[in-house]
Design a protein around this nucleic acid. Sequence first.
DNA 1: ATGAAAGCGCTAACAT
DNA 2: ATGTTAGCGCTTTCAT
Lengths: 332, 332
Amino acid sequence: MAQRVTIKTIAEDLGVSHMTVSRALANHPNVNAKTRQQVLKRASDLGYVKSAAATAMRGDATGIVGLLLPNIVNEFYARFANALAIACDDRALSLIIHLTDDDAAREHQAVRRLRGVQADSVIMVPSPKADQDEELHLDDLKVVQFIRRRQEASPTSGLLVEDKKAIASAVDQLFAKGHTKIAYIGASKSLTSGATRLSAFEEAMARNGLACNPELIRTGTPSFDLGCQSARSILETRTQASALVCGGFEISNGALDTCLRQGLKMPDDIAFIGYGDPASYMWINGGISTISLPVELLAEHALDIVSSNRQPYDGKPEDRFVAASLVLRSSA
Amino acid sequence: MAQRVTIKTIAEDLGVSHMTVSRALANHPNVNAKTRQQVLKRASDLGYVKSAAATAMRGDATGIVGLLLPNIVNEFYARFANALAIACDDRALSLIIHLTDDDAAREHQAVRRLRGVQADSVIMVPSPKADQDEELHLDDLKVVQFIRRRQEASPTSGLLVEDKKAIASAVDQLFAKGHTKIAYIGASKSLTSGATRLSAFEEAMARNGLACNPELIRTGTPSFDLGCQSARSILETRTQASALVCGGFEISNGALDTCLRQGLKMPDDIAFIGYGDPASYMWINGGISTISLPVELLAEHALDIVSSNRQPYDGKPEDRFVAASLVLRSSA
DNA sequence: ATGAAAGCGCTAACAT
DNA sequence: ATGTTAGCGCTTTCAT
């Protein structure tokens, strides 16, 4: 196979030193105009590309952004990744995606590899942390924790969704429509976002003078399955719930899947308010009401935080909150 | 910030040469057992990770797989990326995703950057090629062209979907239900996949003794918009089509969006057969009939081709075909 | 069993 | 305006 094209290749071709080539390519002023032209032409002809490895080894920024997501099938994450990938391409950054499946070991490996390639920064949805998990070494990375927030040894920034108001509106809306037995499925309290959403739900219930039947509140590790199973068991409960609010993307899809499979009409059989706003929600059942998050805006913020200052630690870690909103369609 | 941990850091800590550390970490036999333990412990404590840059500069494989997709919002691509990301994580590979938006310039940049980081291989959905596009330098990459196939200067492998039979079945099915005015929206003929699908459609029409009204056949650069606009204009045509077959993922979503926005009942107002099988198709309109592609299998194949032999050129380029199937639900 | 040297591609810091 | 040197982290080769 063809030998790798380096500045030395070009230098020898042109009978100059490799430094002249380096300077020409870097637009350094001290290069004869004619020489520069020759270098540029030759580089272009040979398809020269600067070695990222050499650059990285010198300690320069790599322009690599790591993205750790539980998965990328969930349309919310997919849209986030999509927006982020476009933004990265626009800024000449490389996006390395690792999927964690919300598993601490996978997350650990992913961070290792990102440190290996000297990624400048990582945008991550931290996995629900078990206490025995080993500490992540994040010192040389600029970290943004997305969606969920976990305490780490190194300072990390946060990009969180402020959804308490939207969840409260959801409950208010259901109450206004006469619902009193309102169920909720969300992430377990060990995740701060799980705790936050749950308390938003409970407070809104209380504010409307509604009792929270423990049978109608389900929490656990957020997943499609949790949504399915919780929805199923809620529907089986003697205390028939007339409405369901979801507090997680996967959960929402899982719960919705169960309701649809059971042939339930919404809102007649059950009023449904999902979480996240995949395009398909618009089409299902004449429109699924949902708590919608501004994905593209979130991607912008994430990249903003990590690229505002490429040197880790130079900027203080910051927390940003972006508001979710309740979108009412026909399912509630 | 903390200085990067290298084998020298560990070597100095332990008062040995960096070579001993290197050997200990590489599991080389000629290392004192006690020394090895010390090295391993220290490395683990300090969170040492081997520099990918140094490794790459020595010419070793980087374990980087590039993925070039038009976008990642389309659920087919998202599921493919998801499956590929999982497979990569399992094999300790890093997946770098670049989105091309089917644009040659973006594609060009993406390939440049992948060559810069010395990616071992690239799995790409080639953008529809305009003739004036500059040649891609793909010599040092192991390339798999996915979905679409383009002629390149360097040898590349192909991973293509064999969907002629599924498309023919779609037409047969519609004809069996009494449809005669069947419309088709697909990619333009300049893409081999576009040409293939279109001819499969035309042949099936002919076989059933049906005429192909040119007004009911639309092709172009595959996109959501093409689907929307073509569907709209087909629905406006005096020659009322009673059925619609889609020949592309984005196209399918776009056409479906238009039909749903116009409040059409399927299959009564129009029989609809989509392309690709996002989970939501199961839920929309009681189930959208579609030409379904085995995504996970495709991801396995793609990684198989590139990782069967990491050295570019050592394995001959190969073409693989994976069969699509017609999934009938309630929309046709 | 351990160490020293060289080289991968690049650029900052010195020559010339 | 151009060239030489050194060093980033690592492993292969050649000593010891």
